[in-house]
Amino acid sequence: MDVTSRDLELLERAVDLAEAAVEAGDEPFGSVLVDADGTVRFEDHNHVSGGDHTQHPELAIALWAVREMSPEERAAATVYTSGEHCPMCAAAHGWVGLGRIVYASSSEQLGEWMRDMGVAPGPVASLRIRQVVPGAEVAGPVPELAERVRRLHERKVKGDGV
């Protein structure tokens, strides 16, 4: 699936949010929810530094969307995210019926980066979005932004966030 110039603009916003997360001492993940008209409806970044490792922006988007949007609006929406959804977030995305996902960097890339930096794998298996939600419409990774995301992860690992 092609990534448009508007997609790139919104992905850049998601990566900006990931950078804000690092600057706040958190992990570098940011996401933006856009409705069918192209209006940003919700955006957030990771909030896991307090110890609750479920505080992912993609999960926050799914929870917000199910409260604030009709099923038809959710299906027509797009989620832009700095990193491919983890299994928890992909499942939430699928369960609430959100539409397209566009991500800057893949789970596979993240795994490679973490191994290269000597970081042990997390407690949850890394799965591609379509392994969790087979019918999901996805686009990514986007090479123009993936390198920037890698640098954010490197900053976090090295403690250069704040």
Results as ranks from 00 to 15, higher is better:
residue 31 S to T: 04
residue 117 M to K: 07
residue 45 H to P: 00
residue 137 E to R: 15
residue 42 F to A: 02
residue 14 A to S: 13
residue 22 V to M: 00
residue 155 R to P: 03
residue 28 P to L: 09
residue 86 C to K: 04
residue 48 V to H: 12
residue 6 R to W: 10
residue 110 L to Y: 06
residue 56 H to E: 14
residue 14 A to C: 09
residue 54 T to P: 04
residue 48 V to M: 15
residue 56 H to C: 14
residue 61 I to R: 06
residue 128 R to E: 14
residue 61 I to G: 03
residue 143 P to N: 09
residue 86 C to Y: 05
residue 110 L to H: 10
residue 21 A to R: 04
residue 147 E to L: 10
residue 63 L to W: 11
residue 23 E to W: 12
residue 1 M to H: 13
residue 84 E to D: 01
residue 143 P to Q: 12
residue 124 V to E: 09
residue 161 G to Y: 10
residue 146 A to N: 05
residue 38 G to V: 10
residue 61 I to L: 08
residue 82 S to Y: 06
residue 56 H to I: 13
residue 58 E to V: 06
residue 33 L to R: 02
residue 159 G to L: 07
residue 132 V to F: 03
residue 47 H to A: 13
residue 29 F to T: 14
residue 2 D to K: 14
residue 112 E to W: 12
residue 159 G to E: 08
residue 41 R to V: 15
residue 27 E to L: 14
residue 96 V to R: 02
residue 55 Q to H: 14
residue 3 V to G: 01
residue 22 V to C: 08
residue 137 E to V: 15
residue 5 S to N: 08
residue 115 R to M: 12
residue 127 L to K: 13
residue 144 E to I: 00
residue 94 G to V: 01
residue 55 Q to S: 13
residue 109 Q to P: 04
residue 34 V to R: 06
residue 34 V to P: 04
residue 28 P to Q: 08
residue 146 A to Y: 08
residue 81 T to K: 05
residue 156 K to L: 12
residue 103 Y to K: 08
residue 26 D to W: 03
residue 25 G to D: 05
residue 34 V to L: 06
residue 62 A to Q: 01
residue 43 E to H: 08
residue 86 C to F: 03
residue 57 P to D: 01
residue 9 E to W: 11
residue 153 H to K: 12
residue 128 R to Q: 13
residue 105 S to C: 14
residue 152 L to G: 02
residue 124 V to F: 11
residue 130 R to D: 05
residue 144 E to F: 00
residue 14 A to V: 09
residue 30 G to L: 05
residue 117 M to C: 03
residue 137 E to S: 15
residue 47 H to F: 11
residue 69 M to L: 15
residue 45 H to T: 06
residue 127 L to R: 14
residue 111 G to L: 07
residue 110 L to N: 09
residue 16 D to L: 09
residue 8 L to M: 15
residue 26 D to S: 07
residue 105 S to F: 11
residue 71 P to M: 06
residue 21 A to P: 02
residue 51 G to Q: 06
residue 126 S to W: 11
residue 151 R to D: 09
residue 125 A to P: 06
residue 135 G to F: 09
residue 13 R to A: 04
residue 76 A to F: 03
residue 16 D to V: 08
residue 70 S to Q: 01
residue 9 E to L: 13
residue 51 G to I: 09
residue 97 G to F: 08
residue 12 E to P: 00
residue 33 L to V: 03
residue 75 A to W: 06
residue 13 R to V: 09
residue 25 G to S: 06
residue 159 G to I: 07
residue 65 A to V: 01
residue 65 A to H: 01
residue 60 A to W: 11
residue 107 S to Y: 05
residue 21 A to G: 07
residue 6 R to N: 11
residue 96 V to M: 01
residue 26 D to M: 03
residue 154 E to M: 04
residue 35 D to A: 04
residue 28 P to V: 10
residue 66 V to T: 12
residue 15 V to T: 08
residue 146 A to L: 04
residue 121 P to S: 10
residue 21 A to D: 03
residue 56 H to R: 15
residue 156 K to I: 05
residue 63 L to Y: 11
residue 20 A to I: 07
residue 129 I to K: 07
residue 22 V to N: 03
residue 69 M to S: 09
